[in-house]
Simulated assay, not measured.
Amino acid sequence: MAEVLAATVVAAPARRPRIAWRFGILALVVVVAAIGVLTWDVPGAPGSRGFWIAVDLRIVSVATIALVACCQAVATVLFHTATANRILTPSIMGFDALYVVMQTALVFFFGSAALSATDGLAKVIVQSVLMVGFATLLYGWLFAGRRGNLHVMLLVGVVLGVGFGSLSTVMQRLLTPSDFDILSARLFGNLSNSDAEYLPWGALVVAAVLAVVWRRRHRLDVIALGRETALNLGVAYRREVVGILVLVAVLISVSTTMVGPMTFFGFLVATLAYQLAGSSQHRVVLPFAALLGAATLLGGYFVLRHVFYAAGMLSIIIEFVGGLFFLIFLLRKGSL
């Protein structure tokens, strides 16, 4: 059924040779950047025991970067499809603010020692379940009934995000300076916060979500045409949009619980993917966005770590560039 519906979509013809070349170049950049991060400036002779120990330690960083890039890029593209607006980002629904308020409340009630004492897979699972549960209840409630409206849902998400942010600010102001410093370090998106224990769990969840997304890629093309067109083509629009938003919540929860909030990275990668992919079809845009995200993070990580020796600044610089890009894009577009 999805294939039949997708055949009715009027889309710009994909220039396959050009797309293939761009895709191949991006894949090559990702491979070269990953090899560079793994092997550049490694102590010990290549092939020695010390060399492979260092490489094994760096594999965690590379795998985490690839996983986070995929989550952020795919989640943002899906969110744009569901909302029919390429300005918005998943953070508008308050996911980042919810993560911040959970971390802040933990320090506020139990002290900064609770952050390290509760670290582990159980804490990651609880945080992810709370974030996905919050999103599912919000979407299901606001889309239920005849008055279900996507714009109302987005507005409620913005209000909840502001409320969570205000609550976090109040609790942070009541913390001791030492507790506040420790909490602030956790709240910055930092790829060094990753843990090898989380990777198998995160990779399994993301792989399952990507499998579902890829299987429904043709329906996503129909949803992107708008509500009226999708309904006329026989798509259960509300159910599909709620399903897409739940998948977005899962991807964002995995990324946020692994490395912390990253507000504008997904927007930056998705917007560039639309321009460079040469096609609006999700079978092209989604892999392109994921590869572009991995190339951006891996390339930036390599340059900052081995050229400027400031690997911890990667997320800050990317968020700054992404925020600046967002403002420029918004001013050029003139509206949301």
Score class of each variant (00 low, 15 high):
Val74Ile: 05
Val152Phe: 01
Gln103Leu: 09
Arg58Phe: 04
Phe79Tyr: 12
Val32Asp: 01
Val100Tyr: 03
Cys70Asn: 01
Thr76Val: 07
Phe23Ala: 13
Val30Met: 07
Arg49Pro: 13
Leu57Asp: 12
Ile125Val: 15
Val60Cys: 09
Val101Leu: 01
Gly50Glu: 05
Ile25Pro: 07
Arg22Cys: 06
Thr39Glu: 00
Thr39His: 14
Asp119Val: 13
Ala45Asn: 03
Pro43His: 01
Ala34Pro: 06
Ser61Pro: 06
His80Ala: 03
Val29Arg: 08
Val129Thr: 14
Ser116Pro: 05
Gly145Trp: 05
Ala54Leu: 08
Trp40Ser: 10
Val101Ile: 02
Thr104Cys: 04
Gly140Thr: 04
Ala97Gln: 02
Asp96Tyr: 03
Gln103Ile: 06
Asn85Thr: 14
Ala122Arg: 09
Gly44Phe: 06
Met153Val: 15
Ala113Tyr: 00
Val124Trp: 03
His80Met: 05
Ala114Asp: 05
Val31Glu: 03
Thr64Ala: 02
Arg49Asn: 15
Ala66Gly: 14
Arg86Ala: 13
Arg58Ile: 02
Leu137His: 05
Pro43Tyr: 05
Leu130Tyr: 05
Arg147Cys: 00
Phe108Tyr: 15
Ala63His: 00
Phe95Lys: 00
Ser61Asp: 07
Val132Glu: 04
Leu142Asp: 03
Arg146Ala: 01
Thr136His: 08
Val60Tyr: 06
Leu137Met: 00
Ser91Met: 12
Gln72Thr: 12
Ala122Cys: 06
Gln127Phe: 04
Leu38Arg: 09
Ile125Ser: 03
Gly44His: 10
Cys71His: 06
Val68Phe: 01
Ser112Gly: 10
Met131Thr: 14
Leu154Asn: 09
Leu150Ile: 13
Val100His: 04
Val62Glu: 07
Phe110Tyr: 15
Leu137Tyr: 07
Val107Ile: 08
Ala34Asn: 11
Val132Thr: 03
Leu98Glu: 03
Arg22Trp: 12
Asn85Phe: 08
Phe23Lys: 04
Gly133Ser: 01
Leu138Val: 12
Phe51Glu: 13
Asn149Asp: 09
Phe108Cys: 04
Tyr99Thr: 09
Val42Glu: 02
Met102Leu: 15
